[in-house]
Structures are given as C-alpha cells and as structure tokens.
Design a protein around this nucleic acid. Sequence first.
DNA 1: AATACCCCCAACCGCAGGTAT
DNA 2: TATACCTGCGGTTGGGGGTAT
Length: 338
Amino acid sequence: MGRQPCCDKVGLKQGPWTADEDKKLINFILTNGQCCWRAVPKLAGLLRCGKSCRLRWTNYLRPDLKRGLLSEDEEKMVIDLHAQLGNRWSKIASNLPGRTDNEIKNHWNTHIKKKLKKMGIDPVTHKPLPPVIPPTDNQSPPAPLTPPLQAQSVHAASQTEKLVLPKPMEYQNNESIETISIQSSTITEVSKDEHEDDEQSKRIVVDDFCTDEVPLIQPHEILLPSDTNILPPLSSSCSSSSTSSTNGVSAYNPNFVQHDLNQSMPTIDQQWCTSIFNAGLWGDDDNDEFISSLNMLINDQYETDHTTIQSDATFAPDLNQYSKMFMYDDDWKFEQLL
DNA sequence: AATACCCCCAACCGCAGGTAT
DNA sequence: TATACCTGCGGTTGGGGGTAT
C-alpha cells in the first residue's frame, strides 16, 4: 500500500526558511509547545508542510542545540560511536546532547570521513584501508594487511559465546603524530546461546546503558515542577502518538524550560532566549509578544506584567560565554552575537 | 576582476516503524 | 486485522560562500 505524501505540497513554500518564518514557528512552539506537526503550519500561519516545520525546529531552532563545529571530544565520541553503531546517526546524536543527527551526519561526511581516510582508516569499517597499489603489469594480489592499529576484528571473537566488541581503537595518523585516543564504553553483545530467543536474543549493552533504550535525561530532569501553572497543550485532540524523542528532548513538552542537560540545576535556556532576543528576531513591535511567551516559560505565568521582564539592556548577557549562535542567516543580525 | 571549482550544510525525499481507529 | 496517520530516520541534493586559477 502506498503512502500518502506527508502533505499537499500545492501552494506550500520550500527551500530556505526566512527569519519571519522562523519567528512564527518559534513563537508558536513557545506558546503552544510541540503538538502534532501536521497542524503546526496551519496554526502558526506558515506555508510549510509539517515535516518541514519539524525538521526546522529539530535541526535548527530547538533551544537546547549547540551550534558550531563539534569539539575534539565530540568528534572522538562520534568516531567511536560510529564504529559501534554504524550510520545510526540518531543513536549517535542521542549520546551528544545538543547535537542533531543531521549535524553529526553532515560533520561525518564532510570532516571525519576525510580525516579517517587520511589516517588510512576505512570510515565504513573502521579498519585499515588497503594500500593504494599503483597499476602494474603484475596482477598478483595485494599482500594481506597487517593491521597497524589496535583495532581487532570483531570476528575474531565470534566463536566465543560472549562477544565483546573491541575496545575503542586508537586512530593513528600515518602522516603526523596526531593520535585520536577514544575512550568509550564497551559494547558487549550477548549471543543467542545464552538466551532462548532468536534474533532478539542479541542485545547491545554499552557499559551502563543500553543504546536503544536509555534516555539521556530523565523526565524529571526535563519537565518543570508541576506545582506551577503549566501551559496546556494547544489542543487535547493533538496526537501525541509518538513518544520518542530526539536527543532526549521530550517530543511533547510544552515547556522547554528544562533542566540543563549537563547540570542538575533547573535552568531556562537563557542563552537561547537571549540570542533570539538580541538577534533582533523579534522586532520592537513584537517584543511584548516574545516577552510574554518568555515570561510564561520562565515564570510559568499566563498574565504577564511586562515590567517584570528585564529589558533588553538588563537582560543582555555576556555574549562571550554563549556557544549558541544563530549565524547562518544574515536576516538574524548575527553580528550582534559575535 | 572574472570564472571555475570545491566545500559545507540546511533542507528535502522517501521509507520504516509505531499507534490510533 | 487492515488501514490511515504521524513521526523518526538515513540518504541525497542544491545552493551559497569560499578558494583557486
């Protein structure tokens, strides 16, 4: 059975998002939370399909996103996780808070792949690449490789009942001294022999967590205390059939005022709010609207006394400490953040 | 300065899985 | 059980910006 297209594309806008569209989407989600995406564009006044809105929010506008290049540690983690998980970008991303699968995928394809190849490592198998043999008349097969790395073939252990994937390998650059030492969890694959089920008998256990199941953050770490006025969802009819999340962020959380991912203390993502505010995404005429939304999020208030919200001047943070940047669209006046 | 080429990444496409009816 | 819907996921593309010639 064929599937319907995600939306009727007639009359819908495609291509890069404008600042105005971003503003509408952010404002809508600030006010109403994430609801059924198919309804979002209509309710938010956007000529986009819901899928496009979801992607824009998930990959770009979400307040908990980090921006900028991956750090060295993050890169090492990506390499290590890729060696264990393959191209399961969402799984990899779930281990890097603030990073999206798309971002990691792009970074992999544009940076890490090349780096690994340069180091003589096959980015797919994470094994040494075969040497490049210049064409000769002699068609003798290439000599077997001696693995220069610590990488050990998984198959070597396949005969044991308990299969332990290799510890993170060291990626050594043949051309420089650069060494990437990856410290990670060990994936232990428990074979069927120890259990009764067939395919499902194999499970991957990564030290203290199962990569397929464990959320990065617990619900109590995400949601605000419930003793305050929580903004209700836009509509009770909105489907929340999918409870899965990206990067551990609740998919149906009307308040993304959340605990800091790395700390236990509850914080609103002030970086994001300040960035949005100072980036001029909201014009003067819209400040009340934005402030109102912010106030609801910060103070859980519906009725806003705007005087209680700090003005632009007093709300201005030390921008140097902020990693979140909106830097890809001139319309957003990013220079204010730089 | 003009053009060609390359790189990067946001966005799109289409399929799969889960859930509601 | 079958169907429809919604969302997540991974692969791919297109265009803007930077660099080389």
